[in-house]
């Protein structure tokens, strides 16, 4: 039987582009992590109130940023997949999900480790922490849906709908610190009046944020390649059986 090569044209181009970006993304990640960790652990001062625990922020806040932005990226590519049936869109969201789940988990755990010395508790059921936990479950649910359908195009559709419904959680996370009383501090970087943090602490935070973004891109390229080749594998196996 003939395999429709048109189906591969687009993903093939996608793979070529990502393969070209990959070594640069990996190098930039290593450099940014080296600089970011040096600034975070050695060069930045201790906070006058929080002492050295402020250093937890440099792994906590970037992880939380990634947790939310990866989810937004998944929602956009899922919508693209549903509307235009773009072949790489669903697979992109699928490839990004485990990375987002890991960052969400890290935001929760490092936040807990910061909460105990500063708030006196590992966990409170307030809006910010609870909505972040819901985000973690949305990631897990999304991955579970992909795993529970044999028909991958059906799985992609169901998973995309879950992501889009769950997207309502993203503004809730963002504004939870303004809408409800909480132990969590309000936004101090992305505010209307500009960052409220001194540059000696803001710079390492932003460098770590860029490092995490570039780390995401690096892992994403590996995973999306596996997804595209995995789909090719399924199609070829099917062709093999039908012959």
């Amino acid at each position: 039987m003939a395999v429709d090569l048109h189906k591969f044209a687009n993903p093939a181009r996608f793979l070529r582009i990502t393969s070209a970006i990959f070594p640069w993304a990996a190098i930039v990640t290593v450099l940014l992590l080296a600089v970011g960790l040096y600034l975070a652990l050695f060069a930045s001062p201790e906070d006058y109130q929080q002492g050295a625990t402020v250093r937890i922020m440099f792994v906590h806040v970037p992880a939380a940023w990634m947790a939310m932005s990866i989810y937004v990226m998944m929602a956009i590519s899922s919508a693209t997949g549903l509307i235009w049936k773009h072949p790489v869109a669903d697979l992109s969201a699928k490839a990004a999900a485990p990375i987002g789940a890991c960052f969400t988990f890290l935001a929760l755990v490092t936040g807990s480790l910061w909460g105990q010395p500063m708030w006196g508790t590992f966990w409170v059921w307030d809006a910010r922490l609870t909505s972040m936990l819901i985000l973690f479950f949305l990631y897990l649910g999304y991955m579970a849906i992909w795993g529970s359908f044999d028909d991958q195009s059906k799985a992609g559709k169901a998973a995309a709908i879950l992501v889009l419904i769950g997207a309502i959680n993203v503004p809730i996370i963002k504004f939870s610190v303004d809408w409800w009383n909480t132990l969590h501090q309000p936004a101090s970087v992305a505010t209307m009046d500009g960052p409220k943090i001194h540059s000696s602490i803001l710079t390492p935070l932003l460098v770590m944020g860029l490092a995490y973004t570039s780390l995401f891109l690096t892992i994403f390229i590996i995973r999306v390649k596996a997804e595209i080749l995995g789909r090719r594998l399924r199609i070829l196996r099917l062709a093999h059986v039908e012959d």
Binding site: G51, T53, H60, I99, V109, L113, W114, Q116, P117, I222
Partner: peptide, 27 residues
């Protein structure tokens, strides 16, 4: 870490562990 080593180092440790595992499993 000014007495907070028990909280700062596990934060960095768990981040490194999870992210390295993710890279290795993905590859």
């Amino acid at each position: 870490m000014g007495g907070y080593g028990a909280f700062v180092w596990p934060s960095y440790g768990v981040s490194a562990l999870i992210l390295i595992c993710l890279i290795v499993l993905s590859i």
